[in-house]
Design a protein around this nucleic acid. Structure first.
Lengths: 151, 151
DNA sequence: CAGTATTCGTTGCAATTGCTACGATGTCAA
DNA sequence: TTGACATCGTAGCAATTGCAACGAATACTG
């Protein structure tokens, strides 16, 4: 019966913030992913790279994307290679600095985004509606605080 | 110069909630992971399984863990196998239902948690302090709303 | 009780990931 | 100019992951 002294402090993972954030992030990512996985065959990093290209200027290198979407360089590189294989973007060496690889959406890529971005925006609107204005502002403020540098 | 008609709606990944949640989750997970990766050689799923065992009763099966910590069954199985190999928990067949595998912390596992849990709690306290009482309550409420069923 | 369906946990296989090293290009200083 | 150093992107390799199929044990149905 006796498992020994209960020397462990009480702990509930369900109230633990890193865990809760991970669960919320995974859940919303998966909800969203249903929009683009089944319909367009995209993975999460593929979606991110495309979304970044949609929102940024025309001459974007791998390192620009890396800085913008919180992926490691090699992951951007591999994701871009896959997207290029699918015909959604082109990779060309930058004439100004031949170390750089410029990523540019193809017409097919733009067409896909023209369909997908409104769906993403609708998803965002749905979440905001569910949280309510005050709730959303609270979340926004908290995320902003978490995004800020610490240490 | 002309890239064709700008047929894409404006979109900024930086304001997109699934993305922001993913970034915040990854960041806090990594901050926390520094506590247990360098020091105890644990991975995230290993930490989660141990934390769940710490907070739950003594007779916990793989499927109980699965339900509790948002991991797929096979991931719990593999994680438990690794933890068993490290000597942090034992796996035994349940006498009541021999399909079930009961996971139980070893003394080494309990000792590790006795060191680690206070660090995790301190981390949580630090985040709450950074957010302030109002900020934390706002985040808590929003996460609760996101955790609730939708559809 | 026999036969079928379901649950539980594990594993094989292919794909993805993370780390590290590498070649290619560019920068800087003497 | 030349040589050391930094940056960019890629690729090799090992480890992890996701999926699906499987064997074992139990529950259900007639």
């Amino acid at each position: 019966m006796d498992d020994g002294p209960d020397d462990l402090p009480p702990f509930d993972l369900g109230t633990f913030l890193p865990y809760r954030l991970a669960v919320a992030a995974k859940r919303s990512s998966e909800d969203l992913a249903r929009l683009y996985r089944d319909r367009f065959g995209l993975t999460v990093p593929e979606w991110r790279v495309l979304a970044h290209l949609a929102g940024a200027g025309p001459d974007i290198s791998v390192r620009d994307v890396e800085a913008g979407i919180q992926l490691e360089r090699y992951e951007v590189s591999r994701t871009a290679a896959r997207l290029a294989a699918k015909g959604l973007l082109e990779k060309t060496a930058s004439p100004a600095d031949r170390r750089l690889v410029v990523l540019r959406l193809t017409p097919a890529g733009r067409a896909l985004l023209a369909e997908l971005l409104p769906l993403a925006q609708a998803y965002q609107a749905r979440i905001e509606a569910r949280l309510g204005a005050a709730g959303y502002q609270g979340l926004d403020a908290a995320l902003r605080a978490l995004e800020a540098e610490e240490d």
